[in-house]
């Protein structure tokens, strides 16, 4: 049984476009994903594809006007508002994307200690800070006194000191130098090896592949593919969805190929496959109907033509 299972999740927002015109923006569309205990699942995809919203939906911290359908199950039971409120900060922790999630008026050491578990929380915080090359004095600083890279490491340490079973890390590494990226990723890997599940949201594909077991590829608010990390290799021919291949081949070391077109806008989603307008292999069937997710070669994809 997966630790976290997301089925057919959709998130929409109503936006007022001047006067009384109300438009629905479909930010997440029929999204499926699962994370097993002991596993790191990386979530990659373009900006605006709904990666952070997924994290916020799991943690139950979407803004009040979000309209959510579908199910999120944790440990086999639905993760409703009451349950997540009890688990948040204990069993389920978020490594947020931005330092603005920290309390600006509290010293960072005290904030990190609030999630620390075990007999001696202060010692736990001290050892994690040491590993992440944060001087002990950093604990006495306020968030505004941290550099970008330091702030990232402080955010990561809130998860590392906890005894959480599910860690949702939302872009934990940008702006860090290579050594800190490696240390952060290996800490997440160790937490998974001890039995936690990790959802690692990132746009750094190469970093994610170093530690992830599985990779979910997002496009325009849905999962277009769930692949094994090992499928991202060579020319990308093991990948099942044309968008995953395009993403892989756009990396500087894999050909640096730009894919024309843009992701559809959230208030004008195509009625068929969301990728069809940019897809070199699209046929009439693709714009008529949205493909359901199906199993192909040991992974999952949302494409009529995958084989």
């Amino acid at each position: 049984m997966p630790l976290l299972e997301v089925n057919n999740l959709s998130v929409a927002f109503a936006r007022y476009a001047g006067g009384f015109q109300r438009r629905m923006e479909q930010a997440i569309v029929g999204l499926d994903l699962s994370v097993e205990a002991g596993e790191i699942v990386a979530v990659i995809g373009s900006s605006g594809s709904g990666k952070s919203l997924l994290a916020h939906a799991v943690l139950g911290i979407l803004p009040g006007h979000a309209q959510v359908t579908g199910t999120i199950q944790y440990d086999g039971e639905p993760l409703n508002e009451r349950r997540i409120a009890a688990l948040r900060g204990n069993e389920i922790v978020l490594v947020p994307q931005s330092v603005s999630f920290l309390d600006p008026l509290q010293r960072v050491g005290a904030q990190v200690r609030t999630t620390a578990r075990g007999t001696d929380p202060t010692a736990t915080v001290r050892s994690v800070f040491k590993r992440l090359r944060l001087a002990e004095a950093v604990g006495r600083l306020f968030p505004f006194q941290l550099s970008g890279g330091m702030a990232r490491r402080v955010l990561v340490s809130t998860a590392a000191v906890s005894a959480a079973r599910l860690i949702v890390a939302d872009e934990p590494t940008p702006g860090m130098q290579a050594e800190d990226v490696n240390e952060t990723l290996s800490m997440l890997r160790e937490m998974a090896d001890k039995g936690s599940g990790v959802l690692l949201i990132t746009h750094d594909i190469e970093a994610a592949l170093r530690v992830a077991d599985k990779v979910a590829v997002f496009y325009a608010g849905t999962t277009v593919e769930l692949a094994k990390a090992a499928d991202f290799a060579g020319d990308g021919s093991n990948l099942r969805h044309p968008y995953s291949r395009a993403l892989w081949q756009a990396l500087p070391r894999n050909g640096f190929k730009p894919l024309p077109g843009t992701q559809p806008s959230q208030d004008e989603l195509p009625s068929g496959c969301l990728f069809a307008p940019r897809c070199p292999f699209a046929t009439e069937a693709c714009s008529a109907e949205r493909p359901a997710i199906r199993e192909v070669r040991g992974g999952w994809t949302r494409c009529f033509h995958a084989s």
Partner: peptide
């Protein structure tokens, strides 16, 4: 640095 690979390449 903050963009996905396809946007970066374009």
């Amino acid at each position: 640095a903050m963009l996905d690979a396809i946007t970066q390449a374009r």
